[in-house]
Write a protein that binds this DNA or RNA. Structure first.
Length: 760
DNA sequence: ACCGAGAAATTTTTT
DNA sequence: ATTTCTCGGT
């Protein structure tokens, strides 16, 4: 750990605006921080300055970041500035901070401290059941529609009662929705559970309903700092207001510092309100605004492209990033025939960058939708490039992990009906829908939890087999509960996974996927052990909280030596030496769903802007002429945003490394004034070349060349690349990689086991 | 109660 | 294209 920085050196290396942002003192400060302008540095130095000057104790600091990773990073940086005193500070996401408060205060309003956190998946499961039970499909209630609507309502801090007052009573669809919403909220309360939106909303409710509780936190947090303020929604905004209010006994409100950039507001779909930042000065009288416009991240070329793009959003405050590091290299553009073609370009360029000495972990590939990962992954795997998917189908969303977690939840929060019902027949123990309904009914009639109902199995008229199964489950849960009292998270999970036979069932299953599922459960057990090591005092509830709140970006691990693949949303707040933005096409960026919404195209443009400004040295923009959607291949047109980048900043390579290609046709360059335009699309380009010549014919057969041995000098034939000579073989076992120089397509690296190759 | 086959729906972005 | 849902047979 580096040395503690003395207080009088905290301003070293900061520019005048940054210094002002670090040293300004007042009730409210808005730092308008352009991309890459060193805002994290400013925030940590500001905190360190407060503490060094004894203006605040660490425990009086509340810093809110967008992801847990950002929180961890900020904590680390703060510790390097001021040492271990940083430990007492609250640095976390909105959600984590609210959970911490709610666990302490839950008893005040009908919850217990072991409440469950329902993620969006859990919410949907619950909503689906309610819709079915109330037969609300007839009234236009779809699961996704209801879920989205409830989330929106909660983000506006309404509850079923206040919402009911706005409902048109003569509209049966509205009433059906209201009934579902009411039942959903009732179920959450009965299950001692909060959904993601409740974590914020109920904290606000708690503060408003119990001022003396709010005062505890108002007195505790004297300095509140919020990052990514442009992406706060109304509930978060209200929470900030509650926390910075004057206390009952007249202590003035805490000082508030917010950092944000309206050009990077990309979460309006989940209620983020750009007005929060636009109207900050009006909301917090006496506020000061400081602008950070000098960029320390990117080359001038990248910044010029970013500025040119974002300038097309008309209702923004004019702001222009600049740097003094020089122009750097041109942006590279590429148009592939298919998504696989595009992926091959990405892989080839990454290979070249790596050969020049750039580490894989300094390279990232962005896309608009998670569905785009398929083609990228296929080509990455074939090329044996180390990569990591960030986000997407997350570990904690896998069914087997949810099953295992449901067991743990049933231990700490036995009234959580969703969890108990999930484990009731997992693994299969002969308790199907009928048994479930009977237990549910018994629980409701007698006013007990489903967990309690399990204890009365023999009085419910089940057959002897079912009674036996229920009694076994019930006593196992009791045994695990007793063990959990000691806090042994890993032991509890292991006990449950073994005694239920869940792991054994997965291991002996004939479904080949179950092997991977068993490994995932083992991985979860490893996670619990790791957790116990890091948190010796950690309870089962602490563990469950942690896994409920992991964000996609939290998975990034800089030392892994892998290329990171992620959506542009996930990329917010990150930076890489080289960035690839893929799928820069109409219908995808802007996405077709956003193109029609008011403000949609502008938000998509901000998203593109966020993507561009993640790049330090090199930026690559790519697209494909055809792309599969729903398994159907359709044609795609270049994104309107591409044409907003001055043509001289981009060097286009339509088709890389294919023999007989357009290498000799630079006039077809797809710049702003290039080969497409008003008459539009690809019609003039696509027929120019027969499809068969493109390197996109990816076979979907799973190859297994496991026993194929190659030696330097061998000649091979590849399905896409034709003939080539093996130049080198590296790696061992299933990870053997052939370095091949293809006669036509140039040098490639191939994973021998699965590459579509044959020795000739 | 369980399992398989066929049908239907799905993909915007996320704490 | 893949995953989830539904239905009918065992």
């Amino acid at each position: 750990m580096s040395e503690v920085v003395p207080a009088d050196r905290l301003l070293d290396g900061l520019n005048p605006q940054q210094r002002e942002a670090v040293t300004y003192r007042g009730p409210a400060l808005l730092i308008v921080a352009g991309a890459g302008s060193g805002k994290t540095r400013v925030l940590t130095h500001r905190i360190a300055g407060l503490i060094a000057a004894h203006e605040a104790w660490p425990s009086q600091i509340l810093a809110i970041t967008f992801t847990n990773k950002a929180a961890a990073e900020m904590r680390e940086r703060a510790e390097s500035l001021m040492g271990s005193v940083a430990e007492g500070m609250w640095i976390s996401t909105f959600h984590s901070a609210c959970v911490r408060i709610l666990r302490r205060e839950a008893e005040n309003f009908g919850f217990t401290k072991n409440f469950t956190i329902y993620d969006s998946h859990d919410s949907r499961t619950l909503i689906k059941r309610i819709i079915k039970a109330q037969e609300a499909e007839e009234y236009g209630c779809s699961v996704s529609g209801v879920a989205g609507r409830i989330s929106k309502i909660k983000n506006e801090l309404a509850d079923p009662d206040s919402f009911a007052r706005t409902v048109n009573e003569s509209d049966p669809n509205e009433l059906a929705f209201l009934a579902v919403f009411r039942e959903y909220q009732r179920s959450l309360q009965a299950a001692n559970a909060f959904d993601f939106d409740d974590l914020i909303g109920q904290t606000v409710y708690l503060f408003r309903a119990f001022p003396h509780v709010a005062d505890v936190y108002r007195k505790k947090f004297r300095h509140i700092l919020i990052d990514e303020y442009q992406d706060t929604n109304h509930a978060q905004y209200a929470l900030i207001h509650e926390l910075t209010r004057e206390t009952e006994d007249g202590l003035p409100g805490a000082s508030l510092t917010v950092v944000g950039d309206s050009d990077q507001s990309i979460y309006s779909f989940r209620g983020a309100d750009i007005r929060n930042i636009a109207e900050f000065e009006r909301d917090f009288p006496g506020a000061t605004v400081i602008l950070l416009e000098q960029n320390y991240r990117s080359t001038q070329t990248i910044l010029s492209a970013a500025n040119a793009v974002i300038a097309n959003n008309f209702d923004r405050k004019d702001k222009s990033l600049w740097t003094d590091v020089g122009a750097g290299e041109k942006i590279v553009g590429f148009t592939g025939y298919s998504a696989h073609d595009e992926a091959q370009f990405v892989v080839d360029e990454i290979g070249a960058l790596h050969a020049q000495g750039m580490g894989y972990s300094q390279i990232s590939v962005f896309y608009r939708t998670n569905a785009q990962t398929r083609a990228l992954e296929e080509i990455f795997i074939r090329s044996a490039l180390p990569y990591r998917l960030i986000g997407g189908t997350k570990f904690y969303e896998r069914a087997e992990i949810k099953d295992a977690l449901a067991y743990l939840i049933s231990i700490v929060n036995p009234v959580d009906a969703l969890a108990v019902r999930r484990i009731l027949n997992t693994p299969k123990r002969g308790l199907g829908p009928a048994a479930e309904a009977q237990l549910q009914n018994f629980a409701e009639v007698n006013g007990v939890s489903v967990r309690e109902a399990l204890r009365s199995a023999d009085s419910l008229g089940f057959g002897p087999k079912a009674v036996r199964a229920i009694a076994d489950l019930s006593s196992l849960l009791d045994e695990a509960t007793a063990l959990a009292d000691g806090g042994a998270v890993a032991e509890v999970l292991q006990l449950l996974m073994q005694k239920t036979g869940y792991l054994d069932q997965l291991r002996t299953s004939k479904d080949p996927q179950d092997e991977a599922r068993a490994e995932n459960v083992d991985e979860l057990i490893a996670v619990t052990k790791e957790f116990a090591k890091n948190h010796p005092e950690g309870t089962l509830t602490d563990f469950l909280t942690e896994v409920s709140l992991v964000a996609a970006a939290d998975e990034i691990d800089d030392v892994s030596g892998s290329v990171s693949l992620m959506t542009m949303h996930t990329a917010k707040g990150l930076e890489y030496d080289a960035v690839f933005i893929t799928g820069v096409e109409e219908e995808l960026l802007p996405h077709r769903m956003a193109a029609m919404e008011p403000g949609g195209p502008a938000e998509e443009r901000r998203l593109f802007y966020v993507g561009i400004t993640r790049a330090r040295q090199r930026l690559f923009l790519s697209l494909a002429m055809t792309r599969a959607l729903f398994g159907q291949t359709g044609s795609a047109a270049p994104s309107r945003y591409l044409q907003e980048i001055p043509a001289e900043l981009i060097e286009w390579k339509e088709q890389a490394g294919i023999a007989g290609g357009w290498g000799d046709a630079p006039s077809r360059s797809l710049g702003r004034s290039g080969g497409w335009g008003d008459e539009g699309g690809w019609s003039s380009l696509a027929p120019a070349r027969p499809k068969t010549e493109w390197a996109n014919r990816v076979t979907n057969q799973i190859r297994d060349n496991g026993d194929l041995t190659l030696q330097v000098g061998d000649r091979i034939m590849h399905v896409d690349f034709g003939e080539g000579t093996v130049m080198d073989v590296t790696g061992v076992d299933t990870k053997r990689v052939a370095h091949v120089r293809f006669d036509q397509a140039g040098p490639k690296k191939l994973l021998i086991k699965i590459a579509p190759i044959e020795k000739i």
